[in-house]
């Protein structure tokens, strides 16, 4: 028996992870590990994990990972990158972390053109606390804190972080992908790879937003959640490269 290219990447540990069935985090962890392996940067990669479901990312990735307070990974990554400029530093954040409590950090980090990469996992809810409304929740979407659906007059509109960041001069590469089928996963992996290369070439700030499934948070079965992300979420958050300079 010979291994094909479809075997677990070396940058992933054998740990069994604690995510719910159908959670998109596992897929995103794997494609990041594959990109790190392909670029051969495992020994000099430093990840900054968020507060949220991915808080245990250090248990799953086999490279250096540190923790940051809620919403502050871009600030921590800025410090690491300035002290160790030869390292590849990326943050891994959810929408509650990056788009709500960490809005200030992400905007100013992008505006300063800090040479880091941000992986932004958008699943429209606060998944770890069982699905409260986040800034990225769709209009009309039912969550624990909006049981009759999100209303524009009361709760405002879904925050389009990637478009917001792309207008800043400091942002060099901004793209949005999803992980709902093998084609989209491959495309998203190419976005992550381009973002890492942007950092390796010292061009400046790069952000990849990934639309992900949170079946437990949006109260659907995994397959329903997958179809919902593919058919509904992508209408509000169009996929593709938003900025590449």
């Amino acid at each position: 028996m010979n291994p094909t290219k479809f075997v677990k990447p070396k940058s992933l540990k054998d740990t069994h992870h604690n995510y719910c069935p159908g959670c998109g985090h596992g897929i995103i962890h794997r494609i990041i590990a594959e990109v790190v392996d392909e670029l051969g940067i495992r020994e000099k990669t430093i990840a900054v994990a968020p507060v949220g479901c991915a808080v245990f990312a250090y248990d799953y990735w086999d490279f250096d990972v540190t923790e940051a307070p809620h919403g502050r990974p871009p600030a921590v990554a800025t410090g690491i990158k300035r002290v160790l400029p030869d390292r590849i530093v990326f943050t891994y954040q959810g929408d509650g972390d990056l788009a709500a409590i960490g809005t200030s950090e992400i905007i100013h980090t992008a505006n300063r053109a800090e040479n880091i990469t941000v992986i932004f996992v958008n699943n429209t809810v606060y998944g770890m606390t069982q699905g409260q409304m986040a800034p990225t929740t769709l209009i009309g979407q039912k969550t624990l804190t909006t049981p009759y659906g999100r209303e524009v007059t009361r709760d405002g509109y879904p925050l389009k972080v990637s478009e917001l960041i792309s207008v800043l001069d400091g942002a060099r590469y901004v793209a949005r992908g999803t992980v709902t089928n093998p084609k989209n996963i491959t495309i998203t992996k190419s976005y992550i790879k381009t973002a890492f290369i942007t950092q390796i070439e010292n061009k400046g700030f790069s952000l990849v937003e990934i639309l992900s499934m949170c079946p437990a948070g949006i109260h659907m079965s995994p397959v329903e959640a997958l179809n919902w992300v593919e058919n509904e979420l992508t209408k509000c958050f169009p996929l593709g490269v938003i900025k590449n300079v």
């Binding site: 028996m1 010979n2 069994h16 998109g24 596992g26 996963i185």
Partner: peptide, 11 residues
């Protein structure tokens, strides 16, 4: 590619 828990390997 789709397995979120990377439990499948192909030889």
């Amino acid at each position: 590619i789709m397995c979120p828990d990377y439990l499948i390997e192909i030889f």
